[in-house]
Computed example of a mutant assay.
Amino acid sequence: MGFIAASAAADHGSKTWDRTHRSVVSVMPTWPGFDRPGFGAPKGTAPEGSGIVFSVAGGQTSKEILTAAHVVNKAKKVRIRTFDEQIFDAQVRWIDGVTDIAVLSIDSQLPSLPLTETAASPGEHVCAIANPFGLGTSMSCGVISALNRSNLGFNEIEDFIQIDAAVNPGSSGGALVDSEGQLLGMIAAIFTKEADIDAGVNFAISSSLLLARVNQSQNR
């Protein structure tokens, strides 16, 4: 029985990866005066984040990318890197500081994930597709621990999905997806009091809040 369960879980994980990873990008900002780039990067090169190529009209490709506002809000230049190592210049189209949501755009179409209000349940198996530590797109999986977390002090407006899937610096802006590869939320925060590393209490902005704020931005 254990072997069957493990095989089923592995099959589910590989299908989730196949359906989603092409729509998750690495976000590479340049911040004025940033002097701790590491890995021999030029001065001004800020820590990498993640982004989700998304569409609200059901299209299979898009030029628009969701990311966390804190990844790009100081940037004087932003580039994105795709799963197959293509590099594109990106423009910051909109930043919503009260929810930590930002929208970027590029000049090329990439495979996208539909942004809809997708139902989620505690205990549901989910995966985080992101760019932890700037290593490139990867996947970690776990379960939903709780829904509708708010008043945590991260943002003025909050509607978080709490998960135990591993999340680390660089994962902000990545995709939280269900077993069907549907977008449930955007990775945004780690809850820890000692270090900025995964402690199994992590948060994604819900798809309903993402959709509401993106729609508001497009109607302005």
Rank of each mutant, 00 (worst) to 15 (best):
I52L: 06
G170C: 07
I106F: 10
A195H: 12
M28H: 11
A175S: 13
L209G: 04
S62M: 12
K77C: 04
D196T: 05
A146F: 06
S105V: 04
L135R: 14
G170K: 02
S138M: 01
T20L: 10
Q182H: 11
L115C: 08
I87F: 11
D178R: 03
S150Q: 12
L209N: 04
G40V: 02
E64W: 11
W94Q: 14
D178Q: 05
I52Q: 03
T61R: 12
R79Q: 15
A69G: 10
G142T: 07
P111T: 03
R36E: 12
A165P: 07
I52E: 05
R36Q: 14
L184F: 07
L183G: 02
I205F: 03
P42A: 03
F191A: 14
P132I: 06
F34W: 13
N131W: 15
A212G: 00
T20P: 10
S121Q: 15
T30W: 12
N73Y: 07
A130Y: 14
I197A: 05
T61G: 05
L104F: 07
G2T: 07
G153M: 10
A57Q: 09
A119N: 13
D107V: 03
V24L: 07
H12T: 06
I197Y: 08
T45S: 13
I106V: 15
W31N: 06
Q60L: 09
D198K: 01
G134D: 12
G59H: 09
G174N: 05
G13P: 00
A165T: 03
R93K: 14
C127A: 15
G185L: 09
M139Q: 15
I144M: 06
